[in-house]
Amino acid sequence: MTMDTFFILCLGWAGIFLPTALGAIGSIIGCARAGQAACGALLDVETGYGRLVGASALPSSQTIYGIVVTMQLNRVVTPEAAPGLFAIGLLVSLALLFSAILQGGCCASAINATKTKPEVFGLAIAPAAIVEGFAVFAFIFGMIVGGGIPGGAAG
């Protein structure tokens, strides 16, 4: 095996695991921010604790999407499959990473708004749901395109 081939195979392996890794990093940051906002809001409200803490868990879904994409991409890594695995794995994982971090910010803002006006919770959480929608797009199309890479069930 040449050095170039080894490097290409490494990229392929990285592409398989990146969606899980970066999805998890995004979820960690997003959930931490929203969770801390929820903890702060708990100091200022008398009721409705459950939905505040519940809203802070929304960015965790990106890790699940990442795991599923990793399982879809997982196969014997060959020089033919590696570039595709790396490209799709990296791009999907970046989408998951940013969506989780920014969704955490949306959740924190929703928690902050709900604290003062509990009746706006449904509307306030809508931006976070929209961000989630984009993560789902990246996840689904990552699955579809990933299925066509050589070595997979459909490839």
Partner: peptide, 14 residues
Amino acid sequence: ATEYYMLVASLPHM
């Protein structure tokens, strides 16, 4: 940076 999320959310609406 994440510390401010808790502090800001703990302050009542201005």
